[in-house]
C-alpha cells in the first residue's frame, strides 16, 4: 500500500515540477501573443495593456504561477487568448482524440510486439528472428516524420483510406455502427504509423529481455530438470522478462505521445498535436501549458499503471513494498 502511496506522491511532485518548468520556459521564450497586435497601428498600446492585464499577464511570474496552480486544482487551466475560450474544455475535446489514437496504438503495439519478440527470441537466429531484427532496424533508422509523410503519400495516391480529420463530412447522417466504422477508417493511417514506429522499438526490447532470461542459469537449471520448451518459456521465462518489458511500457507511452503529436499534424488528426503546435506558434500561453500538462498527465498515468503491474508481476518489488510498511 505504502508503495502505491509513494508512487502517487512522486507523480504529484512530477506534475508540480513540469508545470513550474513550463511557466519558466514560456516566460523565457521570446515574444508574446500580443506582438502582432503591437504592429497593428489601429490598436492602441493602451488596449493591448488592458488586454494583457485582463489575462493577468502583467503580473509577475510567481503570482501568475500561484494563480494558475490554484485554478488548476479546480480543473481550470486558464483561458486561451486565440480561441477566446477556457483552456480545459478545449484541451479535453482534443485530448479525447489523442487518447483514442494512442491507446489504440499502444494496445496493438504490445499485442504485436510481445508475441513477436518472444517468438524471435525463442528461435534465435531463425528466419523470424532475422526478419524481425532487420525490419525493425530499418524502421528505427528512418525518422518518424519521413515514415508518416511517405505513408500518407501512398495512401493518398492509392486512395486506400480517407485522410484528414477523424470522420467524413457526412458522418452525422450515418448510423451508429457506420459512424464507428468511419472513425476507424480515419484512425487507421495515423495509428498504423505509430504502431509501426513503436513496434520496431518495443519488439527489440522484448526480444532482448527474453533472450537474456533464456540464457540465465536458472533457465538452464530448469532445462536440466526436464521442463518442456513451452512450459519453460511461459512459466519460467516470461514472468521474469515481463519486468523490464513493463517498465518499458511507461517509456513506450512517452514515445507514442511525442510520436502522436507529429503524426497527428501530418495526418490531420484532430488531437492535441495540431492544437499544441498552433498554440506554440501563436504563443497562446495557457493553451501551451495546458497541453503540456495533459501530455505529462498521460505519461505519469502510464508509468503509474506500469508500476502497479510490476507489483503484481515481480515478488521482489512486492517484498520491498511490504518492508516499507
Amino acid at each position: 500500500m505504502n508503495y502505491i502511496l509513494r508512487r502517487l506522491l512522486r507523480a504529484m511532485l512530477l506534475l508540480v515540477g513540469v508545470s513550474a518548468l513550463c511557466f519558466l520556459f514560456t516566460e523565457m521564450a521570446p515574444g508574446s501573443f500580443f506582438d502582432e497586435m503591437r504592429l497593428n497601428p489601429q490598436i492602441s498600446p493602451e488596449t493591448i495593456a488592458a488586454l494583457r492585464s485582463s489575462y493577468g499577464l502583467d503580473q509577475p511570474l510567481a503570482v501568475r504561477y500561484a494563480r494558475w496552480v490554484n485554478a488548476a486544482l479546480r480543473a481550470d487551466l486558464g483561458y486561451s487568448i486565440a480561441y477566446n475560450a477556457p483552456v480545459a474544455p478545449l484541451l479535453w475535446s482534443r485530448a479525447k482524440n489523442t487518447l483514442l489514437l494512442t491507446t489504440c496504438a499502444l494496445a496493438i503495439t504490445w499485442l504485436i510486439s510481445v508475441p513477436l519478440g518472444v517468438w524471435a527470441a525463442s528461435r534465435r537466429g531463425g528466419l523470424v528472428d532475422r526478419a524481425v531484427t532487420l525490419a525493425s532496424s530499418f524502421v528505427i533508422s528512418v525518422p518518424e516524420l519521413v515514415i508518416a509523410v511517405g505513408l500518407l503519400a501512398l495512401v493518398v495516391r492509392w486512395r486506400i483510406l480517407p485522410v484528414g480529420g477523424m470522420m467524413s463530412a457526412d458522418s452525422d447522417a450515418l448510423s451508429m455502427l457506420a459512424k464507428l466504422k468511419d472513425v476507424a477508417r480515419h484512425l487507421a493511417l495515423p495509428a498504423f504509423i505509430l504502431i509501426l514506429c513503436e513496434t520496431s522499438i518495443i519488439v527489440r526490447h522484448v526480444r532482448a529481455s527474453v533472450l537474456e532470461v533464456l540464457g540465465a542459469t536458472y533457465v538452464q537449471a530448469a532445462r536440466g530438470l526436464g521442463m518442456s520448451q513451452s512450459r519453460l518459456l511461459f512459466r519460467h521465462v516470461l514472468p521474469v522478462a515481463a519486468n523490464p518489458a513493463i517498465s518499458l511500457l511507461g517509456f513506450s507511452l512517452a514515445g507514442l505521445l511525442s510520436g502522436s503529436l507529429i503524426v497527428e499534424v501530418v495526418c490531420g488528426w484532430p488531437g492535441l498535436g495540431p492544437l499544441i503546435l498552433e498554440a506554440t506558434l501563436s504563443r497562446d500561453l495557457y493553451l501551451v501549458i495546458g497541453g503540456i500538462m495533459f501530455s505529462a498527465l498521460f505519461m505519469i498515468g502510464g508509468n503509474f499503471v506500469a508500476d502497479m503491474m510490476l507489483i503484481v508481476v515481480d515478488p521482489r518489488i512486492r517484498k520491498e513494498g511490504v518492508d516499507a510498511r
Binding site: 505504502n2 509513494r6 506522491l9 512522486r10 520491498e320 518492508d323 516499507a324 510498511r325
Partner: peptide, 10 residues
C-alpha cells in the same frame, strides 16, 4: 540504513 526518502528507515 535500508529505505530512503519515502520508505521507513530501518
Amino acid at each position: 540504513v535500508r529505505g530512503g526518502l519515502w520508505k521507513k528507515r530501518v
